[in-house]
Amino acid sequence: MKQFQWPESGSVRLRCNNIWQETPDCISFTLTSKDQASTFQFIPGQFVTLGVEIDGSLVHRAYSLSSLPNQTEMQFTVKRVTDGLVSNYLNHHLQIGQEVEVLQPAGQFHIEQPHNNKVLLLSAGCGITPVMSMARTLLADKRDQTDIHFIHAATCAEQIIYHSELLDMKKQHQRFKLDIMLEDATDTEYMEGRLTQATLENYCPDIRQRSAFLCGPVAFMQSMKEYLDALGMDMTQFYQESFTPSEPPQPDNAYSASKADALAQATVFVPSFGTQTQISTGSLLIDALESAKVPVIAACRSGICGSCKCKVTKGEITRTSTEALTEQEIADGFVLACSCQIHSDIEVSLS
């Protein structure tokens, strides 16, 4: 089979090939190429930015892949969230045969980060998706001998995503250990409560010997990181999905209060689109580009997904994230618009 070729920039349209109910408030679906024969390459743990049209506007969000790489379908699992525009649309309106805008896989949270031969995959809720891709991939490789300990937290049994498959993996692979913690463990054999430092140590006595990959709600990840550190894990072997909003950018010392006052307004000029807009200094570049109707994608708004990459060719800015950029792109002047603060009149190129 041939490998799917992603464009150097921009999106492609992929077809929804299958949809099924994963839990009462969560669906899984697969996307495939038009010929349904091309395989998709990505690193387990990475995410993809999807774009769907809602009320006449193309809206983008980033979702982790849960499938194996080098397959003809990419699998996603999306949970409905309160007021979640795209998650609710996908759960209620996505149809088999529908085409979706897709940007190529990206992200630095993945199984190719340096790790030893014993790993802890730790997740809660829908954060299970990227670590499930890691587990599936490690177990599918018959040459791989990684010892996998998978710990997952959920509210109740019916909310455990991939529950049946997890149990099958535990039954079929001696090197796969599974522990599940439920807030409500009624009619199950699982422990009831929330994951604490003590329960983590109880589940995984050899935690200090493991590398860890963590994904889940922000508060959950903050607590788990603190617990793992306190339990003596080597934190150079700790990785977590950073798909959360960054702190507001802080100006460099080079920009004094008087200079900021003198430049209360800045002009953002995009020559290739023949458009410019005025915006307050200190504002984010993404806000200026969106107000000028420039077709830039801001899926995560936290400097992680890289979908809003552009080049500042003139002017002064500061940035808080370069995570999705290569060293060469940084040297060439590329920035992530969602993590870039404007300090003067600037000129921007999207290519």
Score class of each variant (00 low, 15 high):
Q3K: 14
W6D: 04
S9A: 13
S9C: 08
V12W: 01
V12Q: 00
E22I: 07
E22C: 06
T23L: 09
F29H: 07
T30H: 03
Q36I: 02
I43M: 08
T49A: 12
T49Y: 01
G51W: 03
E53H: 05
G56Q: 03
L58C: 00
R61A: 08
S64P: 01
P69N: 11
N70M: 13
T72G: 06
E73F: 12
M74L: 15
M74T: 01
F76K: 02
L90D: 05
N91L: 11
H93F: 14
Q95W: 01
G97N: 10
Q98S: 11
V100G: 04
V100W: 01
Q104K: 15
A106H: 05
H110R: 11
Q113D: 04
P114T: 06
N117C: 09
V119M: 09
S123W: 09
C126A: 15
G127I: 05
S133N: 04
S133T: 02
M134P: 07
A135R: 02
R136I: 02
K142F: 06
D144Q: 00
Q145P: 00
Q145L: 11
F150L: 03
I151M: 05
A153S: 15
A153F: 08
C156K: 09
A157K: 06
E158S: 15
Q159N: 15
I160M: 08
I161Y: 03
I161N: 01
H163Q: 07
L166I: 02
K177Q: 14
L182H: 10
E183T: 09
A185V: 05
T186Q: 13
T188Y: 11
T188Q: 06
E192C: 09
E192V: 00
G193Y: 05
L195M: 12
T196W: 14
L200Q: 04
N202A: 13
I207Q: 01
Q209F: 06
A212C: 10
F213Y: 10
V218R: 10
A219H: 06
A219C: 00
S223T: 03
E226H: 06
M235Q: 12
F238C: 04
F238H: 02
E241G: 14
P248L: 07
Q250V: 14
P251A: 15
Y255I: 15
A257K: 08
S258R: 08
D261G: 01
A262Q: 15
L263N: 15
A264D: 13
A266N: 07
A266V: 13
T267P: 05
S272Y: 02
T277C: 09
I279E: 04
S280W: 02
S283Y: 00
L285A: 10
A292M: 01
R301D: 06
C308S: 04
K311P: 03
V312T: 08
T322P: 00
T326Q: 08
D332P: 06
A337D: 04
Q341N: 05
H343C: 08
H343R: 11
H343K: 07
E347G: 11
E347N: 11
L350N: 03
